[in-house]
Amino acid sequence: MESDDETHHFVPHAVHVELGGTVTWMLDSGVHDTVAYHPENASILPSASDQRIPDGTDPWASEIYDTEGESFEMTFEEEGIYDYTCTITGHGHRGGGHHGGHQSHESTGMVGRVIVGDPDLDPDEQPAMRPPSSELPEAARHELEQFNDQTRDALNDH
């Protein structure tokens, strides 16, 4: 998780792990969190009502990290595609859209994807493969659409 000038990113933007694999998000710079797109996270991420993780899996919401090197780990026990974002605004607070005149990191396109195993790419099986909701910020929708194209290309090539 990093920031430079006006941009915020998860690096890498997408990862592919085996079933049972662990992903570690580590703060490199800025103030960030990692929050799964799931209705259970709607209180901290209004756009989370657009579920983008597999049905029946538990969503995550990390703490807010502001010290370089702080990290959050998640072990993925269910095959599937998991989309997430950073809910932080310009002042280091959680919130969707604008907060005190500052855009959220989600609205600048700070989204990420974890692909676990070799999931079925059918949108009926993987909510993340559905077109992003028009309720999501434009930059986030654009990134998620690219993830869908990249995921199809990568998983259909092997």
Score class of each variant (00 low, 15 high):
residue 10 F to L: 02
residue 118 D to V: 12
residue 137 P to R: 05
residue 33 D to T: 15
residue 71 S to P: 10
residue 92 G to T: 12
residue 99 H to A: 13
residue 88 I to Q: 10
residue 35 V to P: 04
residue 50 D to H: 08
residue 31 V to I: 14
residue 56 G to E: 07
residue 67 T to Y: 15
residue 147 F to A: 02
residue 41 N to A: 03
residue 40 E to N: 11
residue 117 G to F: 14
residue 63 E to Q: 11
residue 117 G to K: 10
residue 139 A to D: 02
residue 69 G to M: 05
residue 75 T to M: 13
residue 111 V to E: 03
residue 19 L to P: 07
residue 94 R to G: 09
residue 38 H to R: 07
residue 73 E to P: 04
residue 61 A to Y: 02
residue 78 E to R: 12
residue 125 E to R: 14
residue 128 A to I: 13
residue 94 R to D: 02
residue 57 T to A: 01
residue 13 H to N: 08
residue 9 H to W: 12
residue 41 N to V: 04
residue 19 L to F: 08
residue 101 G to P: 00
residue 124 D to V: 13
residue 132 P to N: 01
residue 125 E to L: 10
residue 110 M to H: 09
residue 111 V to W: 08
residue 143 E to S: 06
residue 13 H to W: 08
residue 29 S to M: 11
residue 102 H to Y: 14
residue 62 S to M: 04
residue 41 N to G: 08
residue 27 L to F: 07
residue 19 L to E: 09
residue 149 D to W: 10
residue 158 H to L: 14
residue 67 T to S: 15
residue 140 A to G: 01
residue 26 M to A: 15
residue 138 E to C: 01
residue 18 E to M: 10
residue 30 G to M: 05
residue 117 G to M: 10
residue 110 M to Q: 10
residue 129 M to T: 02
residue 66 D to R: 11
residue 131 P to A: 00
residue 62 S to G: 06
residue 22 T to R: 10
residue 92 G to D: 10
residue 132 P to T: 00
residue 105 H to C: 08
residue 20 G to K: 11
residue 6 E to T: 14
residue 96 G to F: 07
residue 52 R to L: 15
residue 29 S to E: 10
residue 89 T to D: 12
residue 140 A to K: 06
residue 147 F to T: 00
residue 132 P to G: 02
residue 138 E to K: 10
residue 122 D to R: 12
residue 29 S to T: 09
residue 32 H to P: 14
residue 136 L to K: 05
residue 74 M to Y: 13
